[in-house]
Simulated scan of single mutants.
Amino acid sequence: MRDFKDKVALITGAGNGFGFEIAKECADREMKLVLVDIDKEDLQAAVSFFEKKGVDVTGVECDVTLDLEVEKMVSTAIENYGSIDFLVNNAGVAIPGPVWKLPVQDWDWIVGANLMSQVYAMKRVIPIMIKQDSECHILNVASVAGLITSNGMPAYHATKHASVALTESTSYDLQAINSKIKMSVFCPGFVQTDLHNYERHRPERFMDKSDPYYSSYEYFSGQKRAEFVITTGMPIESIGLSVMNGIEEEQFYILTHPLYNTLIGKRVKEMLEGKGPDLVALRG
C-alpha cells in the first residue's frame, strides 16, 4: 500500500504507544483517522492532538475484547467515512505470571485483548475491504514474543504466537481468493510504551482481586520486571515511521530489534533438532 491520501485508517489502542505513533504517520500521509481506545482521557487527548493539526479524525471509546463493541467501532468508521482502507489491530496487554498461578480472569482478558480483538475486527472489516475491491492493508501488532519464548510470561507468549499464526493463515486465505488486501504482522522488541501500566486499562468485569495471586511475589515482581524492560527499551519516536515504511514496502514481518534475529533463528534450528526449552541457555 503506497497511496494513502484521503484513505481511512482504523487504529485500536490509539490513545498512546504504538497506536498513537502510527496514527501520526498516517496523518502525515493525509489519511483520515478513526482512533479507538478503552481509556477515555487518552482517547480525547489523542483526538485533540490531531484536530489541532487539522486532521479529519474521529474517536471511538471501545473495549475491543467485546465483539459488540468492535461492531460499534467498525460501524462508526463506515458511517463517518464510508470505507476502511487500513486496519491496525494494536490494542493489547502484557500480563506476567506462571500458568499454574495466573488467575483465569487474566487469561480471559489477555486472550480477548491480544487475540480475539483482532479476530473480531478482521471478521467485520475484511468483508468491507473485499467489497471495496481496492488496495487495503491490515496490520496486526504482535511482538517478538510471538516468534521466541521465555519464562514468566506464558499468557503473553501464547497470545502473541497466536496473533502471528492468525495473520499468516489469514494472508493465505486472502491470497486464495485473489484479494487486494495485504497483511503485515508487527513484532517489536522492548520499546518505551505504556504497556507495563496495563492495570489502568483493566475492564470492570476483570476487576475481582480476591485471588491470592494479586498479593503474591510473582505478581509484584512481574510488574517490576515489565516496568524495567519497557522503560529501558528502544525510544518510541522511530516506530511509526518504521511501521509505515514496512507497509509501503509490503513487508509481512515488520521487526525492530536485529539483536533478536539470532534467537529467532536459534529457536527454529532447535525445533528441527527436536530440542526443548533450556532455561540455563536462555539466561546464559
Rank of each mutant, 00 (worst) to 15 (best):
V229C: 03
V229W: 04
I230F: 08
I230K: 00
I230G: 01
T231Y: 01
T231H: 07
T231C: 06
T232L: 02
T232S: 14
T232K: 07
T232Q: 09
G233K: 02
M234Y: 01
M234E: 11
P235R: 07
P235T: 06
I236K: 03
I236N: 00
I236V: 08
S238I: 10
S238A: 12
I239A: 14
I239H: 01
G240Y: 14
G240C: 12
L241K: 15
L241D: 05
V243F: 06
V243T: 03
M244L: 15
M244E: 04
N245S: 15
N245R: 11
G246K: 02
G246S: 09
G246F: 12
G246H: 05
G246A: 07
G246Q: 06
I247D: 05
E248L: 11
E248T: 08
E248V: 11
E249I: 04
E249Q: 15
E250Y: 08
E250R: 07
E250H: 14
Q251A: 15
Q251F: 14
F252R: 06
F252S: 10
Y253H: 13
I254N: 02
I254T: 04
T256D: 13
T256Q: 12
T256S: 15
H257R: 07
P258R: 04
P258G: 01
Y260P: 00
Y260M: 09
Y260C: 02
Y260L: 07
N261W: 06
N261A: 10
T262L: 13
T262K: 15
T262M: 11
I264S: 00
G265R: 12
V268T: 10
V268P: 00
V268W: 11
E270S: 12
E270N: 14
M271W: 12
M271H: 13
M271K: 13
L272Q: 11
E273F: 13
E273Y: 13
E273M: 11
G274H: 08
K275G: 08
K275R: 12
K275N: 09
K275C: 03
P277R: 00
P277F: 14
D278C: 05
V280F: 05
A281C: 01
A281P: 00
